[in-house]
């Protein structure tokens, strides 16, 4: 008999397949989130997932929990409202980098200042994928996108510094480093106070192809080659992944 993937019970499996492109990393993050919820044995009643807009924003709808799909950039204030109105709930935000750091950047700044007890999982694909591939706040310098055809000239946002400035939990990982990424999420979910887990995620359709990658696998290998695990530092360099607590 086929083994059952028990963590999938956290998803509405009749909604699968997801509408994301072939090779998209969002599915990996979704799966890791479910595995983390299972590992911590989060109750289905009593846990709420909140997301914003964009490809990543669609994640909330797949969870077999009460979930809220908010307006663009507004996942964090909605999550804060939920948490502060009922502190017994576990409130998890899963959304993209454009949503959390771009249009919703001000909310992140202030939520971390308030240190509201919510866990944020940021699907950081460094691109606005759903709208066709415009550059996002985490797009690396020199990266070619639809709106930076000769390479991005704007410095990517230093979200680590922003979160750390308010002494909140910050962790970074990639969709290649599955075990590490899951550890980041588990620690983020366990953390009391605001926690932010940034998962570098591949977007092959609207980002990778413009940058010369042929498929999702090549982007995963790029993460493998370019990010080194460093769990013993208070500050991650730009090519390091780790937990800085």
């Amino acid at each position: 008999m086929t083994r059952k993937l028990t963590y999938l019970n956290y998803l509405k499996q009749d909604l699968l397949p997801t509408q994301w492109c072939p090779g998209c990393g969002n599915g990996i993050v979704l799966k890791l989130a479910c595995q983390s919820l299972e590992e911590l044995n989060f109750p289905k009643k009593g846990t709420v997932v909140v997301s914003g807009i964009g490809c990543a924003g669609r994640s909330a709808g797949f969870f077999n929990l009460d979930s809220v799909h908010t307006a663009h950039g507004r996942a964090i204030p909605v999550a804060e409202g939920i948490k502060l109105a009922n502190e017994k709930l576990n409130v998890i935000v899963i959304s993209g980098d454009g949503d959390l750091l771009g249009i919703g950047g001000n909310h992140l700044l202030h939520a971390s200042r308030r240190n509201t007890d919510i866990s944020i999982i940021c699907i950081a694909n460094a691109i606005y994928g759903m709208t066709g591939g415009q550059y996002s706040p985490t797009t690396e310098l020199g990266s070619k996108t639809l709106t930076t055809p000769s390479g991005n000239t704007d410095t990517p946002i230093d979200v680590q510094a922003l979160i750390k400035a308010h002494n909140c939990f910050y962790a970074r990982s990639t969709t290649y480093h599955l075990k590490h990424a899951m550890k980041c999420m588990v620690e983020a979910l366990k953390h009391r106070g605001l926690s932010f887990a940034e998962i570098k995620t591949q977007c092959i359709t609207n980002d990778g192809r413009r940058r010369g990658f042929k498929n999702g696998y090549e982007m995963l290998m790029y993460y493998k080659d370019n990010y080194k695990i460093n769990n013993n530092s208070n500050e991650l360099k730009h090519n390091e992944i780790g937990i800085v607590g």
Partner: peptide
């Protein structure tokens, strides 16, 4: 191996990673 063809989008990650 059990493949759910309804879910598979032929992204090819498994092909390369195996």
């Amino acid at each position: 191996v059990h493949i759910d063809h309804n879910r598979c989008k032929l992204c090819g990650i498994c092909v390369s990673i195996c």
